[in-house]
Design a protein around this nucleic acid. Structure first.
Length: 441
DNA sequence: CTGGGGAAGGGGCCC
DNA sequence: CGGGCCCCTTCCCCA
């Protein structure tokens, strides 16, 4: 006969003991703040503590102290509360640091939940954006709560509006995608989460470009070699059990001698850590990459999540970074390069002209224009209200595409050269564009 | 098949 | 901390 509430009560009792500092035999110092806990609970919850406490198990009579500078006391509070209650209090503000800390502490469940949280938020974010961009200006303008489309009226890319159901909780989430997120572990939950649309999409995009970019599916392979390394360590050295190995299929664990925090972690028991990268503070939970700033980690994480929050309103292509979008826009849609596309010579407003081909704009020198017999298709950038990158401080109205002209010009295609003389009414052209050009490569 | 150029995308870092 | 710039690598297309 099994009493289902026993586990809950046991954990509750342990948590109560922790709060009253009863039988606590382990102190964790996080940036000056002391946390009391039970060695056996930490051992059972964290691969990191398992290693640490295994090593120090010979000195069981002495209290153990561990010091961390890799994360904040607030972050560790979230982690420790989860250990003692099973409830993980995630917010948009803390999720990255909690995930980073959980990665360091080798707490697979926490990492999975953080990943789910991030992915869910990104899905919502994407869909909210899609919904946002799909609103017509009329709708936008008529709704005081909506911000104006950052690209103005033209070049809208997609798509019908969505609401989003949180896969974990089954609740409908709208609006703030980074709202609080409490996780209650479900024993039957699949260890391997369903890949988000971003992951699926990214898988189909192309091979990993960067050396440091480990797709989640690649990681087990990578880890196995790490684990082999670990197995090859001298007998007596701390290593993880097979169980531990099996429950960590996705995330590269920080291991002994693998510092990533500022000053690394100072452990009172001569825990063997080196300090090769003293300035690196944030470790990517998906790969081995480390960065100094949380913002850089956030940016880096997009290459794993596949998040592309910056759509080009001209061609629909999405980018993970604003600067890449800006660069793309200037190069492809604004003909900013003062170079003849054909002969590669430098051109000026006088010696060359801007040619438009679909949504693409580039420059040709007068000679090449004449040679191609397309000298009559000059696009006067000044007169035609070009695709323009907004000045600073105009974040909400990026790249208005000549709203005054967009719908009343006609498209004239040059049959031989496939060149477009003027931009056509955006609604039809856009649909056409979408068919040929998916949002991502 | 191969080399060159353009574009995308990732990291470092400054403001 | 976000924006943006620079540098570099990788990929793709085309001659």
């Amino acid at each position: 006969m099994e009493i289902s509430s026993h586990q809950f009560h046991l954990l509750q009792q342990l948590n109560e003991q922790r709060r009253q500092d009863l039988f606590c035999d382990c102190s964790i110092l996080v940036e000056g703040k002391v946390f009391k806990a039970h060695r056996n609970v930490l051992f059972a919850s964290s691969g990191y503590f398992k290693m640490l406490l295994s090593q120090s198990s010979k000195e069981m009579t002495q209290p153990t102290t561990a010091t961390f500078q890799a994360f904040s006391p607030d972050t560790f509070t979230v982690i420790l509360d989860f250990v003692y209650s099973g409830k993980l209090s995630l917010t948009g503000q803390n999720v990255i640091e909690v995930m980073s800390a959980a990665s360091y502490l080798q707490m697979t469940d926490v990492i999975s939940v953080c990943k789910t949280f991030i992915k869910s938020s990104l899905d919502i974010s994407e869909k909210e954006k899609d919904r946002y961009f799909s609103l017509s200006d009329k709708e936008v303008n008529s709704n005081g709560g909506e911000q104006p489309c950052p690209y103005g009226a033209g070049w809208r890319a997609e798509s019908p509006s969505h609401s989003h159901s949180n896969p974990e909780q089954g609740t409908c989430v709208r609006g703030n995608t980074w709202s609080n997120f409490n996780y209650y572990p479900a024993p039957q939950r699949n260890a391997q989460q369903q890949p988000s649309k971003h992951e699926q999409r990214q898988d189909s995009i192309k091979k990993s470009r960067h050396l440091g970019l480990q797709q989640p599916s690649d990681i087990p392979h990578y880890k196995s070699s790490k684990l082999e390394d670990r197995a090859a360590e001298p007998a007596g050295h701390i290593s993880q059990s097979e169980d531990q190995v099996q429950i960590e299929p996705e995330v590269e664990s920080p291991h002994v001698g693998y510092p990533y925090s500022q000053g690394s972690d100072v452990l009172s028991r001569n825990y063997p850590l080196t300090d090769d990268l003293p300035r690196m503070r944030f470790k990517c939970p998906f790969c081995t990459h480390m960065v100094k700033r949380k913002a850089d980690l956030k940016r880096h994480l997009r290459c794993h999540t596949g998040e592309r929050p910056y759509p080009c309103e001209a061609c629909g292509k999405r980018f993970s970074r604003l600067d890449h979008l800006s660069s793309h826009f200037r190069t492809i849609h604004q003909a900013c390069k003062l170079i003849c596309r054909k002969c590669k010579r430098h051109v000026t407003e006088l010696t060359g002209q801007v040619v438009q081909e679909g949504t693409r704009r580039y420059r040709l020198c007068n000679e090449c224009l004449a040679e191609a017999g397309i000298d009559s298709i000059r696009i006067d950038l000044e007169a035609e209200a070009p695709l323009e990158f907004p000045p600073d401080g105009d974040k909400d109205s990026r790249w208005h595409y000549g709203e005054d002209n967009k719908s009343d010009v006609e498209i004239v295609e040059d049959g031989s050269s496939d060149l477009v003389i003027q931009q056509v009414d955006d609604s039809e052209d856009e649909a056409e564009e979408k068919e040929v050009k998916p949002n991502i490569r």
